[in-house]
């Protein structure tokens, strides 16, 4: 639900979230790109239930996702702090099984 009106966003870009192409704009965080696309689950908890972002300011760790970009090896980063970039590959439910 991007608000329109008095805002001009950055250049359009596309990232992949769990294999799905997600359109976003330069300046948006990964979290914004996902929520704008109605992708609410950033991880699975120990019981396998989906979890959303909670604090949106880097404190809670609920939005840690695996991010691969360019040749760099994948990192676990907070989606609320990390700017989206064109070609970024985001995985929300990699590793947690337990």
């Amino acid at each position: 639900m991007r608000s329109d009106g008095d805002v001009r966003r950055g250049a359009p870009l596309t990232l992949l979230v769990d294999g799905q192409a997600v359109a976003a704009f330069e300046g948006e965080t990964i979290a914004t790109a996902m929520l704008a696309r109605d992708l609410l689950a950033f991880r699975l908890d120990r019981g396998g239930r989906p979890r959303g972002l909670f604090c949106n300011m880097g404190v809670c760790g609920e939005c840690l996702v695996t991010v691969a970009h360019g040749s760099a090896s994948p990192r676990r980063l907070r989606a609320c702090l990390t700017p989206a970039a064109d070609g970024m590959i985001v995985t929300t439910r990699p590793d947690e099984r337990r």
């Binding site: 959303g52 909670f54 604090c55 300011m57």
Partner: peptide
């Protein structure tokens, strides 16, 4: 549940 967050967020 996804969608529940802090008001500050």
């Amino acid at each position: 549940l996804p969608g529940a967050m802090s008001a500050g967020g």
